[in-house]
Design a protein around this nucleic acid. Structure first.
Lengths: 311, 311
DNA sequence: CGATCTTACGGGATTCGTAAACATA
DNA sequence: TATGTTTACGAATCCCGTAAGATCG
């Protein structure tokens, strides 16, 4: 026994038209083919649904009974198909991504704004967490994909390079290092950096850990440790010291009176990866966001010092 | 676009089994055929429902979404098909018939008892009304068929002979007519009937009208007119007079001390017809009741006088 | 390398539309 | 007789199962 939507449609058309010829036209079928469709349905159900003569077509009691079911089935079908089509055409859907707070605050918002403008029906869920929880969310299926600083290429996860994040010196514009000696070309050296009072992030932060690993064993003149990058910015602007921060967080420091300079040391370039599950295809919405983010990756850091003027 | 129950079943099987081979077996299909079914469904819906590798099969987000709809559709389908099958196999259904009160009280109950025993799920609606309303109920569709004394063979209605209803003399067992003179063979004549006091039904009753038409122009010795046959019985038993009533109402008079004798005049035989609509087929339940009633029609009236003894 | 999904392909069933037959008002 | 349904039938399509191919663990 196999009932198709075409049979349901044929039934409803005939119930409405009470005429095989018109109902057949409505279904874009020849009348005999349509007739066969109705007959097959009646045989499947084991009961006559229409009383018909050449002059009259009418529902039987069983047919009237079946009509209610047929209408509910048709409605449910339509809703399901429309829902799938909406999902396929991005009129609705849901994407969950996990990414580093620095990306989430500085670079992501404009990308999301554009995405949302194109696909207003798609719900967005953003987890701005550190790299490890990012990976965990992808692994557990809570996020469709992640942007994190861990090359998580496991049997389950697939990582591809997304962008690179280079450390920059930040200092006041009246600081000696802001001057870019000998024609701006020469990068700042480790020794130069180490001779000035330094504002550190807390030891547990990834910014601090990556920096320490890169500068080891050179000791720094640490003047204080803070938790938030915004605090680092305040301290540097107040002239308490200098600092070094990843390019993705530069937006915190684009303030009047501050200067940023790329450090351009290979050890101080960390890679950001896009991580996704191997076994799970991206949903239409996730695929669209993926494409959007990949084509608007953060630009490579500019090679020259930037000085913010007071307005 | 055409979605079939087999595709829904295939989807649900695969969602449950998460394995093409097992799901295919569950659907009694070869694995490639099953695979094609899923592919066709995905193409119809325009979206991937399963993420699959050779080792793993899993619902996509869209697939999980579709599952709810699929389950509702399957449930609704099952209910509809079961309902139709029940109707076809008389596990449920409804019959409405209209018939003369005499048939409804005397003959019908045992027939219905047997029918109900065989088909307890079928609802029965009985209208015990006179012939004209019987016909009207069939014509208007309120009754599936009727048993009435009108040969209603119109373009819309079809009548077939059902049984004949012959008038019987009723009197006390000590009445001269109860004796069945000259060897019980000779029927009672009109003249004999007319010489005794007669208990009449009211003029508007069909029993009275048919009797008057048959006896015309012979005048009767009317002693009174009553509305109910039970009253006629009481009067006759009290010795107030005799009466003549149709065989179908004899059950009223099967009382101790009363005698009934068939009158056997052709003019006093009225035909009962089974009347149904031409354009409408009988429902399964109506067809079954029709057969049941036709095969257990009221027996022809016995040819001899019946005397009820006191117990 | 074994288990499992997909592709390829020939045969059989299904379904289509045209045309003729049939039925009813 | 005119309208409308069913039957008949050849052709196109769809669908199935077997066998071979591809892929993942």
């Amino acid at each position: 026994m196999n009932i198709s939507t075409r049979q349901i449609d044929a039934f409803l058309a005939l119930a409405a038209q009470r005429n095989f010829t018109r109902a057949a036209m409505q279904c874009h079928l020849s009348q005999p083919a349509f007739s066969a469709l109705i007959r097959a349905l009646e045989e499947d159900l084991g009961i006559r649904l229409f009383d018909r003569s050449t002059r009259h077509v009418e529902l039987t009691a069983a047919g009237a009974n079946f009509m209610e079911s047929a209408q509910r089935i048709r409605t449910e079908m339509d809703a399901a198909v429309a829902s799938m089509r909406d999902e396929a055409t991005l009129r609705r859907g849901r994407v969950a991504i996990a990414l580093l707070p620095s990306l989430a605050a500085g670079w992501l918002p404009e990308r999301l704004a554009e995405f949302h403008q194109h696909h207003p029906g798609v719900e967005l869920e953003i987890a701005d967490v550190l790299s490890e929880p990012c990976i965990a969310m992808v692994a557990s299926g809570k996020a469709d994909f992640a942007l994190a600083a861990i090359r998580a290429d496991t049997p389950d996860l697939q990582a591809e390079p997304f962008c690179s994040d280079e450390y920059h010196l930040v200092c006041r514009d009246d600081h000696p290092l802001a001057k870019a000696p000998r024609g701006r070309r020469r990068p700042v050296s480790v020794a130069e950096l180490a001779q000035w009072p330094f504002i550190h992030m807390a030891r547990h932060s990834s910014v601090r850990q990556f920096l320490e690993a890169a500068l080891h064993p050179q000791p720094m003149k640490s003047v204080m440790e803070v938790e938030q990058l915004a605090t680092v910015m305040g301290m540097v602007r107040a002239g308490l010291g200098i600092s070094a921060i990843p390019s993705l967080t530069l937006f915190h420091f684009q303030q009047p009176g501050l200067v940023t300079r790329p450090l351009l040391w290979p050890e101080l370039t960390r890679q950001i990866y896009l991580v996704r599950r191997r076994d799970r295809s991206l949903s239409s919405a996730a695929q669209a966001l993926y494409t959007q983010l990949m084509t608007h990756r953060p630009t490579e850091a500019p090679g020259s010092a930037v000085r913010r003027e007071l307005p």
